[in-house]
Design a binder for these strands. Structure first.
Lengths: 297, 297
DNA sequence: AACATGATATCATCCTCCTTTATGTCTGCA
DNA sequence: TGCAGACATAAAGGAGGATGATATCATGTT
């Protein structure tokens, strides 16, 4: 009975011989000696118990059986070559996909310029950014669904994730013309309780960070507005609907031109940070590694 | 730079490990030791300069790069397995094709019953019979276009073909009622010159054999009719259009029932033979070999 | 016919590199 | 903290493939 071939090297030699129609030429291609090729073919024929080539004066030709086998083996060999080629592309960053978890904020104020540069350098790499709340991003990271996350503190740091601070950010309270009386005064945090506040909604880290800080100072706020995006908060503040609580960057433009001003308090609001978080258990794709390098991680 | 892997065995191991998600299990499947698998994977990773697996506490998992590669390599491995399976089928005569060159005559009076038995035994094997004149059949045999030929003597025996006689046949002259005067007389070959003869046309071996024999006896014939098939000759003879020259088998039925009779001559017409001709340079497919065996070759 | 040529087959030897055995290391779990 | 399971490492030994020389065979040439 015919055995299954337990040395795929034989098939490689077989492919070359079949294609070249010559043991000698195949040997040259494979950088081995002609007797080695002759032996390999013989071994393969012995294992399969079937003549694969007809030996002629000038070279060899496939038999019917050899022809059948070659059809399959050649395809297999091609597949492997193709796989190696794709892998090579991936290593050359000519192919690949990066999955990032980031919030609107980290994306806009930190990641975007890097992604731009990265994409310019490696246009073939597809970059997918999942826009999710920090806790979900961390979960995605643990599950290996993203290569890394960019989140803002504070977040529940899991022991098995590794976070690197990449940028400092500050939460500020901003207001428009209508709240001019507060301008240039050193305010007490308590006064926030009486102001019509405009905050981010839900479980964002921006919101939870601020609430935690205020709670420590025995301040309890009741926001007038809870909005989905920081941009929207700025717009509300511009229209004097209240005092907005945002990361300073969001309001920078209007602060500089004087349309908004920043409230000053007698207690320093703790700084927050952007962190790039990685999962050491999940080895990164070459592309992701490269992007992280660009980020200075 | 990434190298091309020069040991396909590594890929086999890679496949098993990837599928099993465990070095130990893969080692079991491959009937080799766990360290051997570990080494193979390491070698592959070294050659490709890329981590293919993430080592976990319980087993291994493919990295992004490994995943990419596996897609291709698995397909390749499947192809090879499929090729081996097909080959196995071919060796079991569950798959295949036989090409035979044969004339109408050899097919009808010799080959047909064998083909019937062969097809009954191996219904999956496709049999193709090329119906061509003997010289063309021999050419096809030399070119490897057919596995073997079945022809009738005489034919120009080429040194590199091998012929085996499988059956004796006799050329006879048959006539109907109108030619009764010739019946039971011992005729001289010369008398053929005066008869209205019905022969095969062209370059068939039947015709050339007969002409050569008659020429040796200084007889020159001028056939009244030259027909394409022996059957047609019999029909013409039945209608008393002349004396037909055919292989006896074609007329047997009518000879037995008396519709035709056979002319007798004072010189014995040499016997002819059916030969199975093979080309020793062209190794036969397993199926063809088997059929030849059935033919007693 | 004898010979030169180009190809494959064979053989003995050598050496590479893979396999194995034994052991180390790490992780997760009880 | 200790155990069990899984992968990694190291050293040694051996199987089997590669090599180089040579034989053989077919072809085409003079």
């Amino acid at each position: 009975m015919m055995e299954t071939v337990n040395n795929l090297e034989y098939y490689k030699v077989f492919c070359h011989v079949a294609r070249a129609g010559s043991l000698t030429v195949a040997a040259g291609e494979l950088n081995i000696s002609q007797p080695a090729v002759s032996q390999s073919v013989k071994q393969l024929e012995r294992a399969l118990r079937v003549k694969l080539f007809t030996r002629a004066a000038k070279g060899v030709r496939l038999t019917t059986e050899g022809e059948l086998l070659y059809g399959y083996v050649a395809k297999a060999y091609e597949q492997i070559a193709l796989g190696e080629q794709k892998l090579r592309q991936m290593l050359n960053l000519e192919l690949g996909e990066i999955h990032i978890g980031a919030s609107d904020m980290t994306l806009q104020f930190y990641l975007l310029p890097y992604l731009e540069r990265f994409h310019e350098k490696y246009p073939q790499i597809k970059v997918a950014v999942s826009n999710a709340p920090t806790p979900e991003t961390l979960l995605n990271l643990q599950d290996g669904k993203i290569d890394f996350g960019v989140v803002s503190t504070p977040f529940e740091s899991r022991s098995d994730l590794q976070a690197s601070v990449v940028q400092e950010i500050e939460d500020v309270f901003v207001a428009g013309r209508k709240f001019i009386p507060y301008k240039n005064r050193m305010l007490d945090l308590q006064e926030l309780e009486k102001m019509p506040l405009i905050c981010l909604e839900g479980i964002t880290s921006t919101r939870s960070h601020m609430e935690a800080f205020l709670r420590q100072n025995n301040v309890l706020i009741h926001p007038e507005f809870e909005l989905a995006t920081s941009d929207m908060i700025v717009q509300f503040a511009l229209r004097n609907l209240g005092v907005g609580c945002v990361v300073r960057e969001f309001a920078r433009e209007y602060l500089e031109e004087g349309a908004l001003f920043e409230l000053r308090f007698n207690r320093i609001i703790p700084k927050r940070h952007f962190c790039v978080v990685t999962n050491p258990r999940n080895p990164l794709s070459v592309a992701a590694k490269n992007l992280l390098e660009l980020l200075g991680i």
